[in-house]
Design a binder for these strands. Structure first.
Lengths: 239, 239
DNA sequence: CGGTGACTTGACCTCTGTCAAGAGAAGTGG
DNA sequence: CCACTTCTCTTGACAGAGGTCAAGTCACCG
């Protein structure tokens, strides 16, 4: 169960046997959610953090006029609300975008890790810092890229992240979001989301069918996206 | 010198005397920068992190077509590139937006803190998590708010953050950014930035003169911004 | 076989970017 | 002390990206 976290952290640094034993000793409660169920609600103060074992989830905020903005996408292996461990109060909600299997880890266990395992603590910290780096990249995409480039960038990012967790199949990966949900990711209207996707499709850059995205021309997609994977820190080095 | 960090962390939790002594024992090298100088360059691997003692700084990324997006603003007391401690390679640059005085803290010292002081580590971790929360709020503003509301939100945020560091004077605070720099924050053109500022001015919500911003109607500004300060975590509680 | 949800497409309109020009303020050098 | 440059702010005119409204198609499902 917690092996998926070990696999995730291993993308950034070596996890020693001792550390693996410590992680495996942490009790994890498994639970399943349906699509569209909240994994964590805004303004709640959960006493545990949620490790995503299977499925897709999103952080989101609602505006007073009823629109939604998705601020982050999460795939299997992501510790989706590690933040709540220190933030205490959730400033946003987390929703399942597909049926999800998760593991709940009590904050007291994380507290124990911070007291006893400095290196593991730094790696968990790193994961939240990478979340921040992804946020910055999204801000750049929203502020200074065309919608077409923004979408291309997002697909490049998701491809690399899912590849790191072994969730890709060649240049394809399972991706269950509807175009309406994607619109809430990019911050645009459903209609324009559709037209933006079609623009990439017509140029033979991506395929998107049956909840499966396929990158048809990786190099060209990276070029129009101005994609540089440095911010994902997918490099094993001492941290 | 490092007292400003203690003051900053004290906004979120109690710092014990022992912890203060530990922090004060850390060597800090002071340095000054002119406006428009890079404090940290993109793609560099600095062996130290930068604590902003005085002035304003911004994280930014450049796009291939020469435009700039500012992804975060930093005020005195912010540990502007704590991230580099774990990220190792900077995925963005940090620039001085005014003359700045900073303190450099070697990563080896931060490493020492993570080994010896679990609670302080959690507080430094918290600061990077709050940076992430601010990023999310910016994403919501860029994706789903009007430009007017986005600007209002930013002013509310800056007011609260500067107030927490004792940098406000009534409802006014020093703010040296040009409108062109603000355009790079909100991700719009200089011309429209100007019109957006004027819109808030005409309605008597803010004043903006001589590099000084004044909030003229806090309640109304918060309303149109849909501002909820929860995400800033400006609350003293055990972390 | 009707209903539901997701995806498409067209028409139209608004918000925001671009281009251009002018007004102030501030600093520089003779 | 005065011309001169430079930078920032301001305003107008126009164009283009993206939003809104509306309708229609398609696949899936009970």
């Amino acid at each position: 169960v917690i092996d998926i976290l070990i696999q995730n952290l291993s993308n950034h640094d070596i996890i020693t046997d001792e550390e693996q034993i410590l992680l495996r000793s942490i009790p994890v409660r498994e639970r399943s959610y349906n699509a569209d169920e909240d994994l964590v609600s805004e303004n709640s103060r959960p006493p545990f953090s949620t490790l995503l074992l299977e499925g897709f989830a999103a952080r989101y905020k609602l505006t007073p006029d009823g629109t939604r903005q998705i601020t982050a996408l999460h795939v299997a292996g992501d510790f989706v609300d590690l933040h709540a461990f220190l933030l205490k109060t959730m400033d946003h909600g987390i929703i399942a975008l597909s049926p999800c299997r998760v593991g709940h880890v009590d904050h007291s266990e994380l507290q124990m890790v911070t007291q006893k395992a400095a290196h593991l603590t730094r790696l968990l910290w790193l994961k939240t810092i990478i979340d921040g780096a992804i946020h910055r990249e999204w801000i750049v995409a929203m502020g200074r890229r065309s919608k077409r480039a923004h979408l291309a960038h997002l697909i490049c990012e998701l491809y690399r992240r899912m590849e790191a967790m072994g969730l890709t199949n060649g240049y394809s990966f399972h991706f269950p979001l509807s175009q309406g949900e994607m619109a809430d990711v990019l911050g645009l209207s459903l209609v324009h989301m559709n037209r933006t996707i079609q623009s990439l499709r017509k140029d033979g850059l991506i395929g998107w069918l049956n909840h499966t995205v396929t990158v048809l021309d990786w190099d060209e997609l990276c070029t129009i996206a101005d994609f540089d994977p440095t911010y994902l820190s997918l490099r094993v080095e001492p941290r």
